[in-house]
Write a protein that binds this DNA or RNA. Structure first.
Lengths: 355, 355
DNA sequence: GTAGCATAGTAAACCGATTTAGTAGCTGTT
DNA sequence: AACAGCTACTAAATCGGTTTACTATGCTAC
């Protein structure tokens, strides 16, 4: 067993402020870098190194506060333990909640992640995955974003993707979501129901609307096309919902309930309805979608279809890591369905003037 | 000038799905890696390489879709073009907005960032900066978090730091913020004002309260200690504000206005006040703080002191990158003050029963 | 004829780890 | 005495770039 050298080099290292390298640590204990590396990583190759030496190495590592360079390790191992997350906009409640779930699982597994937000700009949606690939991420999670898959890289999409080779979609059970909301409204006696569809670019728009139509048909509710509005514009403010609702009111067509594309637009809708002299929920019941944080803080508190966003984020991270660990070419799930939940709050009530 | 080799290796590379390496690119054009590297990076050393060759190299790089490995480059250059962002909780509107500003500036400058959220757990606040250092981030931004500075690494804190060697604080002009709110309320005739202080662990609590006291004194408003509540608990839901406000109401002490620590607690407070039979703003005016997204969506829309969170994020990123670029030991700003703005909405009105 | 200089590159070190193949020294066996 | 087999390591290749120092060739000037 070797004995440690003098401590002067240690002091110098520490004073310099830079980290201690494997080389200096090895010199300090008087062993080769290889030996130190094996011991530090508890790799099988270290089994021939006696315990006393192992202890010596570990002790020195602790004392010198040795932290292996993640970059060097990544280069050698061709593993970065990093993934990329692509979202439309960080500051939106939707993406933030999903990210919170993603983070939870990732950090626990020793992964870090880069976030990029594209704000619906196509060239960024194209470019960011490539930049992330260049930074050697091991996989991607796309939130509410349809990205072209990047060669050889596992991709998990959280709501908002067509079926594509190579991607796992985490999707809400839209049929069930629509049914939950529509059943709730019809049970309350509503028949004249207005709808706000999502923007054309939003990936959930089509499927959600389809589900609503189906649910309506099943429940025997006719959809009046004059009571169907659509969000327009890229902002994520209630303003959009406000504008659409003004139009719906302007049509003169009466309705006793409104099912909005999301909570944000529902909030705008409520403002427009109030300005139009309607009380919520006495005159018009309003149902939102998503259950973002502020849905519960509204007045009246918003009845909404909850998407388990945090869980979806966790599930995405879990699935992605599993795919990364799997041998290339292995089977992978094309779709994972999560269940919505109706959160009944105060924005819905029995219809007072049933048709 | 060399001529390109056959294309078979190119095809093989592309088919393999993995990126093209500098080595294979160099082989493909029949030049050394050094030459290719110099040209690709447009480094001064390339000036002796004729234009025709440069074009050849660049053309091949485009065709092969060559993207240099960021990791290899980081290792060699000892620059990662990555920074770390430490926040209490991603899904909170506050942090999300700051991050949005940070991202804006960073990506523009070719930087990426890792986010970690500590949820107020001390051991994570200790550990994360070290993990980030290990991943070779070039600097840190701490949002609403007091972290110990990490050796040799520039650190910028967005609200919530004591003065510490090595850190630049981005802080709100709290005195002005308090004055704005208090002036607004006193001008409306309020004299009996209740307050909700922040949690003890929140870094802004002390300074904000101090500023409020000063502003009150300057304006000749007495602060009734029985009308001062404090948020308790780590959640970031309006519930906390709700609980405190119930207590304030329970004290029996009358008040016509309430100045909450933040918007979230103001929202909870409004609920509690309503349940106590008070109308907002007729009976009680409520002022929030921060101007998070949902403040504007409230009913009534919340009057609040706006912190320019996005700008603070951008400023933090800008400052950090400047510090990274500066020679070690250079001067750096200890503090950068940003100005609040009073956003008058519908939750405040003239006092009806002035004392 | 050759010193001087520009041109057009190249060889090799280097960043900081991981990992494979190998070696030196010792013990035990036949 | 020779060899196997074990122990305790080490040397060197490798990951994919960047960068410095150097070389080979041709041309001009004296």
């Amino acid at each position: 067993m070797p004995r440690p050298k003098s401590r002067t080099s240690l002091r110098a290292r520490k004073a310099s402020g830079q980290g201690v390298s494997l080389k200096s640590l090895a010199e300090h204990v008087g062993l080769s870098q290889a030996a130190v590396s094996l011991v530090i990583n508890r790799s099988p190759g270290a089994k021939s190194i006696p315990h006393r030496t192992q202890e010596l190495i570990r002790k020195a590592a602790r004392e010198l506060n040795y932290r292996p360079s993640h970059i060097a390790r990544s280069l050698r191992q061709q593993r970065s333990y990093t993934i990329g997350v692509v979202v439309p906009e960080i500051s939106e409640g939707y993406a933030a909640l999903v990210m919170s779930g993603i983070e939870d699982h990732l950090l626990q597994e020793g992964y870090f992640y880069f976030v990029v937000s594209h704000r619906h700009r196509d060239e960024l949606i194209e470019e960011y995955p490539l930049m992330l690939q260049q930074r050697a991420v091991e996989g991607l999670i796309a939130v509410d974003t349809a990205i072209r898959s990047v060669a050889q890289m596992p991709l998990v999409a959280v709501s908002g993707h067509r079926e594509l080779p190579g991607v796992t979609n985490i999707v809400l059970d839209h049929a069930r979501a629509a049914t939950l909301a529509m059943e709730h409204l019809t049970k309350l006696g509503h028949r004249k129901i207005a709808f706000i569809k999502g923007q054309a670019f939003s990936s959930d728009t089509a499927i959600r609307w389809e589900s609503v139509r189906n649910a309506a048909q099943t429940l025997g509710v006719a959809i009046n096309e004059r009571l169907v509005g659509q969000l327009e514009g890229e902002s994520s403010s209630p303003e959009l919902g406000y504008v659409v609702t003004k139009k719906l009111l302007g049509s003169g067509e009466p309705f006793t309930a409104l099912f909005a594309f999301n909570d944000i637009s529902a909030i705008g809708a409520i403002q427009a309805l109030r300005e139009g002299g309607k009380s919520i929920p006495q005159d018009v019941s309003v149902v939102g979608f998503d259950d973002i944080q502020s849905a519960a803080f509204q007045n009246p508190a918003l009845t909404t279809v909850r998407q388990p966003l945090r869980e979806m984020g966790m599930l995405a991270a879990e699935t992605l890591l599993r795919r990364i660990a799997a041998p290339p070419g292995a089977e992978y799930p094309k779709e994972i369905v999560v269940q919505p939940e109706l959160v009944c709050r105060a924005s819905t009530a029995a219809a007072t003037s049933p048709s």
